[in-house]
Amino acid sequence: MSKTILTIDDSRMMREMLLMVLQGAGFNVVQAEDGVEGLEALSRSTPDVIITDINMPRMDGYGVIEGVRQDPRYRATPILVLSTESSPEKKQRARDAGATGWIVKPFQADTLLDVVRRVSA
């Protein structure tokens, strides 16, 4: 059974790139354009892994992570942050919110898949 991944990013280009890489690796992909949509998507599908951007309109990635962790069904679901930023402060904040991993944009397809497999094995 292939795993489902929810990708949350306000950039169409990023969403398409993630879709191409993840689908190519056999994952089901559910897409959301911002944090609010991302949390809404949780009621329609049950992702095994969530990949979220940080800087987004309406609700940023930290809000997404906190929101996901508040949902009992997703307490243990790996949440990966995909961001161009990599400052320790930002990472710490994401970790405090409950993030599982951090992938720096731009990402290599292999790296992304590696991290996804690592957290979802």
Binding site: D10, S11, M13, M14, M17, N55, M56, P57, T84, K105, P106, F107
Partner: peptide, 18 residues
């Protein structure tokens, strides 16, 4: 200010990818 920041940020993100 956030929107302005995000715009530059997103341009940068894609630029890195390519």
């Amino acid at each position: 200010i956030n929107a302005v920041f995000r715009a530059v940020h997103s341009v940068k993100g894609g630029a890195g990818a390519f």
